[in-house]
Amino acid sequence: MSLINKIKWILGILMVFILIISTNLIDRKNFQRVRDSVVSIYEDRLLAKEIIFNISNILHEKEIALVEYDTAYFSIINSQKNKELNSELEKFKKTKLTKKEERVFNDLQTDLSSIIELEKNIDTKDFKDNKNLNDKIKIANQHLKQLSEIQITEGNRQLSISQKAVRNVELYTQIEIYILIFLAVIIQIIIMYQPKND
């Protein structure tokens, strides 16, 4: 094999190698986007949704106890439920929050602090006098509903990011196949070409 043929082979193989490396790097970036998006959907949206559900259930129990004038709830169970509320809030703080979500979450924390403070002064003898507590629970529920809606919106946004990344991977894979076929044809032409000797 002559020196020119060896150079042709080396250039041909080098072109294929560079193409494969470059598309691999692009694919890796897109797969990382998909992975990050899926992790975000799980950690920051589904877990947050579960936390919102748990807080909502605790508030619902408090509402029922107020309506039923349940003195046992407020004297025995309520302190444990408040600890659970604080635990759920700490979990929620660890999720990745958007600016709007952070604002609504801060409002919710303020509501829950007010609820706990009002419960300290609850008059278990005259439950009818606890309208402020009931109103605060309703406001907290509205903030929970807003947070729940944000989870859906952000989950959809993350899903859209992952779908776009998957489409990019598919597009680059198709382009890579066409370029590889084109390069294979060019390499064959370069290798098979024999200049005429006059």
Rank of each mutant, 00 (worst) to 15 (best):
L25G: 01
L25H: 07
I26L: 14
D27V: 06
K29N: 13
N30L: 12
N30D: 10
Q32P: 00
Q32M: 10
Q32K: 14
Y42T: 07
Y42N: 08
D44F: 02
R45L: 00
R45Q: 03
L47T: 08
E50I: 11
I51T: 09
I52F: 10
F53W: 12
F53P: 00
F53N: 14
S56L: 05
L59R: 02
L59Y: 00
E61H: 07
E61F: 08
E61L: 14
E63H: 03
I64S: 09
V67L: 10
E68Y: 09
E68F: 05
A72W: 03
Y73D: 06
I76L: 07
N78E: 12
S79D: 12
Q80H: 10
Q80E: 11
N82G: 09
N82I: 08
L85A: 09
E90A: 11
K91N: 09
F92I: 03
F92R: 02
K94M: 11
L97H: 11
T98N: 10
T98V: 08
K99R: 11
K99C: 02
K100W: 09
K100H: 10
E101D: 09
R103L: 10
V104Y: 03
F105K: 01
F105A: 02
L108E: 05
Q109K: 15
Q109L: 06
D111E: 03
L112N: 00
L112F: 04
L112W: 01
L112I: 06
S113C: 01
S113F: 12
S114Q: 08
I115E: 00
I115S: 01
I116S: 11
I116Q: 12
I116P: 00
E117L: 14
L118I: 08
E119L: 08
N121Q: 12
N121K: 13
D123Q: 05
T124E: 07
K125A: 15
K131V: 15
N132A: 15
L133Y: 07
D135H: 06
K136N: 08
I137P: 01
A140M: 06
H143G: 12
H143Q: 10
L144F: 01
L144N: 00
K145E: 15
S148K: 08
